[in-house]
Design a protein around this nucleic acid. Structure first.
Lengths: 187, 187, 187, 187
DNA sequence: AATGAATGAGAATTCATTCAT
DNA sequence: AATGAATGAATTCTCATTCAT
């Protein structure tokens, strides 16, 4: 961890916080500089452009989620366990690091380069779980990407509405409910 | 039947097309004027601000979807039929009027004034279907909003990925698949 | 008084009220139309431009003051009486018709055509009074325009500060005070 | 002694020149930028808005006049001397720095935010002179603010008409004339 | 590496004026 | 005469990016 990387990290952190709060476009480089306690020019010493910064923020954050999920999944073996774990872990991540979760799943993706938008490795993890489950005969035969998509939609939409206060159910009760639904989709 | 041909509709159409393609913030009033074949100033004869225009576009579009769904649902009676119809109709709407669908469900909602964001009457329709189904004993007892959220997530995420080409399944096969999944969630 | 002139008068009145409140430039044709209960286009049926309207407002108002002063002065004979009358009448006019007074003497003159700015017939009246007083030996010999200028400055500045609340003297006491000062200037 | 040569002063100078020539409203930020040889955006690095710029110009200019008068007055002792000095100094200032004088006393004050308009420290100086004169028995008893107002009106109106060419008297003859008038007002 | 003043290409919005009805 | 929608040039202000220090 060289000292030199400090400012770059400050920028990345400031940018993440602001991007997820106001969106990428609505966040100015001046905002970022102020929050990171650096000058505007410094941003350009570390990033080619605001766009590139946004992409790096996205990729870094995406990686954090990926590693978090991978780590959690490593503890589970059966497909069913792994699916439940995936659901619970996404909820946990959203809870513990809402800023990051929100940036990854919320609206701001339209503001990213198309190329970057695609790299969602958490989706790959889910596809893998389903594939494994199908191989083991635990899940029914269905296009893996379609299944993953439906499962992910179920999870993310719930988290979204949870945050927006439209659902009046105990948080504790929701996760099992969503786990059950996802399982049903795959059976 | 307006007495005077007004450019208000031209503006609304142009704005919808551009908002859904590039997002609200990325669309300039100049863009809108050019596409609507009017001058920039004219926008401000019909709308107080670009923000207000965006809200009106959203509300108009939301209403169109609502009426479309309501119309379709009127033909069905049993909860199961109505749920299937809801799913199919959302797919149909997305197909026939992708611009409108995309604007309603895609990322651009973060760019709207909060107040407007909530008024999603298509969600209410779904809640109603589920409630009816529960009363008839067709669906299990579960918080209606939570259930509606999971169902809607399943549908919209699928449509989204369908458009983004991640799923390699025949369109014809997908709708029944999603219908089945939604039904399972509610059983 | 033909009926036809009504709208033109409405416009003139509305314009005067707005010009004096916010200044000419800060008043929009839309403001004027709204206040006069007519449409923007109608202004241009009666006036060539907003500028011309402003000039006409100024000239009309200037004429009103001129006639008011002339009328009052007609009742006085000696130079001293006439001077006192002039002072009192300006104060009276400012009191009774502050809108008009304010428009004539306040800042907005910079916003008028140079040509129009000059036509201040109330100044000519004052010059005449002084000239007459000099002829009768009542006032000392001094450039009439210079004297008129100093007298007018004394009066208008006082009225201005009176309105702005910087002076804590009874209104009744001020007029004699200013009359006395003006007389001294001319003696 | 600023460490870094900044364009702030260029902007202030350009703005003063233009504001006094055309008025604040009629001066565009583009005008100012062109005259200051900078880009429009630079204005906003140094001032929050055009309004704020106008206020700062006014305050700076007001201060310059105040210091000029204070300096001159320091050389005089008796009330009578100080009054004469005040009159002459205002004339001198108007002559030597007509741009500044004109901006302070001409119409443009209506275009400033109200708050700023009041701070006319040159008026306070005059009030002080009168007060002192009254204490020494040199001037008669009269509301100090009213007296100052009349005196100031006499001076400024004269300067105004002098510039507008309505008075055909030698400049040299005018100052004593005005001094005499002001003295009379106070006796 | 870091700064922050400066840039300049737009952005949204305003408004006097025109014109078809 | 009257309307008010439409115009388009102008206005204030923003912001990603550059550059001299």
């Amino acid at each position: 961890m060289p000292r030199v990387a400090t400012k770059k990290n400050d920028i990345l952190h400031a940018a993440l916080a602001l991007f997820m709060k106001k969106g990428i476009r609505a966040t100015t480089t001046k905002d970022i500089a102020r929050r990171a306690n650096i000058s505007e020019g410094t941003i350009y010493r570390h990033f080619l452009s605001k766009d590139e910064l946004a992409n790096e923020v996205f990729e870094k954050t995406s990686q954090v989620l990926y590693l978090f999920l991978k780590d959690r999944l490593a503890l589970c073996t059966t497909p069913r366990e792994r699916l439940d774990c995936y659901v619970r872990s996404l909820f946990d991540f959203a809870r513990k690091d809402h800023k990051k979760y929100s940036f990854l799943f919320a609206a701001h993706q339209t503001e990213l380069r198309r190329q970057t938008r695609k790299k969602t490795k958490h989706m790959d993890l889910l596809v893998e779980i389903i594939m494994q489950g199908q191989m083991y005969g635990a899940f029914r035969a269905v296009d893996r990407h379609l299944a993953a998509t439906m499962v992910l939609g179920t999870i993310t939409q719930t988290i979204f509405y949870l945050k927006n206060g439209d659902i009046r159910v105990n948080f504790a009760d929701i996760v099992p409910e969503v786990q059950a639904s996802c399982l049903k989709i795959l059976n």
